[in-house]
Every structure is written in C-alpha cells, then in structure tokens.
Design a protein around this nucleic acid. Structure first.
Lengths: 180, 180
DNA sequence: CCCCATTACTTGGCCGACCAAGGTAAAATT
DNA sequence: AATTTTACCTTGGTCGGCCAAGTAATGGGG
C-alpha cells in the first residue's frame, strides 16, 4: 500500500474531535446531491434537443407567456438578471428566442420564442415528462404528492429566508398553489 | 427588420396549444428551485468563512477522512474529476488544502486539509447547522424524516438512472444508511 | 521485454449562476 | 424645469459544474 512514513491511517489530522457522519445527516446534502443528479439527467434528455440544462426553464416560460418584457421573465424564472441576460444572448444566437426593444420603454426589451422554436416545444415537453418519470420512478402516488408538498414547504421557507435581507425575489416563482 | 407589423399582444405566438401550468406540476422544477434557494442560503452562511458554496462539501470530506488519494476524494464527493481538480487548486491557493505526490504512485496525489483549516471546521459545522435549521424550519419532526427518506429514494433512483450508460459513479455518495 | 489497455489527473472550453458595478432611460421630487 | 431616485438591462469577474481530449504513469498480456 502507500508506504508512508506515518503508518497509522489517521482518520483525522490534528483537528478536534470529528463526530463523523457530517455528510449524511443533513437534508442539505441530500438536496445538493439530488439536484446534481437531476441536473445531469436533465442534461441527458435535453442534449439531443440542443438545449443546455436551465435553458428549458426559460423557454417554457416564454412558450407559456408569449412576448414579455425581459423584467417580467426575470421575475418569473426567479434568476439573477445577469444570468437571464446571458442566457438570452445564447438562446437568441441559437435562434430560439428573439428580442426587440420595447417601443413603450426604451430601456426595456421584449422577449419571445421564435417560430422555429415551436417545434422544440413538443420535444421539450416530452423530454421533461421523461425526466419526471425518471425522477419519481421509485415513488408511489402518495409519496409523490407528499414529496411535492414537502418541497413546496421547504421552498417557501427558504424563499422567505433568502428574501430576508436580500432583494424581493421569488415571489413570482411561488405563484399558483403554494403562497409565499 | 425590427419594425414589426404585429400589433396585437398575442399571449402565444403561433405555437400549438399550450396547456399552461407546465411549470408548477413537475417535481423537477421544485427540485431546481429548492436547490437554487438552498445554494443561495448556503452561500450566505459560508460567505464570512471565505468559502464558496460547494467547497464545504469537499472540506468536510477531507476533515472526515484525513489524507486521501484524490481519486478517493473524487469518488466520495461524486463530482466530476475536473471539477474537483479545479476546486482543489483554489482551496490549495486559499491555504485550506495541501496536496503532495503519492510516493507509491507517481501519477496520484494525496490530499489533506491543512492545520489552519481546522479552525474553519468548527465554524463550517456551525454554519451548516444553521443552514439545516433554515431549510427545515417549516417542517415538524415527522415531515423532516419523511423528506429525508423521500430524497434518499429519489437520489437512489436518479443515481441508477444516471449511472446507466455513464460511468460508475455515485456509489460512494450513497454510502452508509441508504443502499444504492 | 515491449506493447497496450487502464488508471489518475490536468487542461481547455463552455454554460449556469452569483455578485458588483456601470450606463441609460423613465419616474418621482423638489 | 432640474435634480434625484429608481428601474432595466449589460458587462466583467469568479466559481461550480460538465464534457472531451490530452498527458503521464501503472500494470497486464503476448
């Protein structure tokens, strides 16, 4: 094995007592890991469509809302404005999105999905159905609704926590069912 | 060009019927949103410690395991090797981590947390406790265990799905309690 | 003994995502 | 009417994260 001068496989260097199991207890880690795996799965089903994970979020919003002010889009997806700007630049360059100045407000932009992107709509919807299936494959109906409910609660909690001391975001993200 | 003749504020371009509510139904979106909020919250509690969200994952692993081969670390955290490499470069530059060649294998590296990083250990642990509290604030005890259980199941499912057709990863991520 | 597959890591490129700071235009105040 | 404030977006920088490709060393057949 590793012929090191120190022969004892010290589990901890000189650090104070390490209660171990720091990594499995917290739900926080589970969220991170699940999110990462989910993103990878998303990337896999979206790859053939020429979309990168995260973009489908924006496109779905645009397909759903039609032409909107960019600020509205930003509120809807709940992301940082700069993030949306750069994503839109790439989506525009890919031909999925069109932007034009808002005649009513010269600093604003109107964003909409292009006609050619409509073909994508169907496939993205299908891909997301597949992703959803993959995600919830091991859960029965009641577990699924329960998971959705719990995630909604956590989202609301975190939203309140994050908003506190920050900007007023994610009010649009928590629309319909679960109030914020 | 920019002068468009369309004056009507069409809610949807020419796309086929948009069943709407594409965004709230799927658990997938909930996962994404919760993950994002959670990451922001993590960044907030870690900011004063000089760590970026994601790094605490690696550091905790190192504090827990002591000096390890980089490949072991990679398997443990379940991230892409290149991701870990770059993270370690930054952590090394920050003085939190030390790397040295493995005498037994000249292509491998041994990684360990530095002594100075041990002070961080306590604070990171505290910060993660706070984060966990913030995350689960709105849930009672039974809901918390249920959420953990469901996330574990989803993780296992996604893990299997992602592993299928890809590399053999995330077996180490699903260690202790929940089998993969 | 040499060749070749495997392992271990690095580099480069790209994207999502954040923050911080900037610039321009509309709205609010004075 | 002039000035301040606020809103809307953009740019630059940094990180986490992926993939794809490359380098170097180990180890297993022929």
């Amino acid at each position: 094995m590793t012929a090191d001068a120190a022969q004892e496989p010290r589990t901890t260097p000189e650090c104070p007592a390490t209660p171990s199991a720091v990594l499995d207890g917290p739900v926080s880690h589970a969220i991170s890991r699940v999110s990462r795996l989910h993103r990878i799965a998303a990337g896999r089903v979206l790859r053939d469509l020429g979309l990168h994970p995260g973009q489908e979020f924006v496109m779905m919003q645009l397909w759903d809302s039609g032409a909107v002010r960019q600020s509205e889009l930003i509120k809807a997806v709940g992301l940082d404005p700069s993030t949306v700007t750069k994503m839109l630049q790439r989506l525009e360059h890919s031909g999925h999105v069109r932007r034009r100045p808002d005649p009513a407000d010269r600093r604003a932009s109107l964003v909409e999905a292009t006609d050619t992107s409509c073909g994508l709509l169907v496939e993205v919807r299908k891909a997301w159905g597949e992703l959803e299936r993959q995600t919830l494959d091991g859960l029965d109906a009641s577990e699924r609704t329960e998971l959705a409910r719990l995630l909604g609660k956590v989202e609301a909690t975190l939203c309140a926590e994050v908003t506190r001391g920050g900007a007023t975001e994610c009010d649009a993200a928590l629309k319909g069912p679960a109030a914020c």
